[in-house]
Amino acid sequence: MNFSQTVKSILKTKDLTPSALARMTGYTPQYMHDLLSGKRRWNETTINKTCEALGIEILIVSKEKKEERKVI
């Protein structure tokens, strides 16, 4: 799952719209819609502001570790 898909899923879970997320992050609704649709690329700042607004964090997990967890 990519970052945009993850954000969309979280928005749905929290009953938020992309426009609401835009207000929370200080971006325009159009800019947020463009990020979520793939018309614009996420950068470190937009990812950080989005994570902060949604109360989430990104964890880096190696593929090896991920595969080990599936087996167990």
Rank of each mutant, 00 (worst) to 15 (best):
M32Q: 13
K12P: 02
S4R: 13
R41P: 02
Q30C: 08
R69V: 08
D34I: 05
L35V: 11
I10S: 03
V7W: 04
N2I: 07
S19I: 09
V71W: 03
G26M: 02
K63F: 09
L54S: 04
A53Q: 05
R41S: 15
T13D: 10
Q30Y: 10
I60K: 10
K8N: 11
S4G: 14
S19Y: 06
T50M: 01
K65W: 08
K14Q: 15
I56T: 08
D34N: 15
W42N: 07
I72L: 10
I58E: 06
T17D: 11
V71H: 06
K65L: 14
F3M: 02
E68L: 14
W42H: 14
I10F: 05
M32I: 15
K14F: 09
P18Q: 14
E57Y: 12
Q5L: 03
L35Y: 12
R69K: 09
G26C: 04
S62M: 04
T28E: 00
K70R: 14
L35N: 06
K49T: 06
E64H: 07
M1K: 01
T17R: 13
T17I: 04
I72S: 12
L35M: 10
T46F: 12
L36Y: 10
V7D: 00
S37Q: 01
E64Q: 15
K8Q: 14
T13M: 06
Y27P: 02
T50L: 02
V7A: 03
S62W: 03
E68D: 14
K12C: 03
V61S: 12
S9W: 03
Y27G: 02
W42G: 12
T28L: 00
Y31P: 05
V61A: 12
K49Q: 13
R69A: 13
N43T: 07
L35F: 10
F3T: 04
T28G: 01
T25C: 15
G38D: 03
E67Q: 13
T50F: 00
V7M: 00
M1L: 09
K8C: 10
T28W: 01
T25A: 07
A22W: 02
I72E: 11
L16C: 00
F3G: 04
T28V: 00
T50Y: 00
T46W: 07
I72Y: 05
H33L: 14
I47C: 11
V7F: 03
N48H: 08
L21H: 04
R69T: 14
Y31V: 05
K12R: 12
D15M: 09
Q5K: 09
R40P: 05
T17M: 08
D34W: 07
H33A: 13
A20S: 08
W42E: 06
L11P: 03
I72H: 06
N48I: 12
E44C: 07
V71S: 05
G55N: 10
I60A: 12
R23G: 03
D15S: 06
N43R: 09
I47E: 11
K63T: 15
E44S: 14
E44W: 03
K39S: 08
N48S: 14
E68A: 15
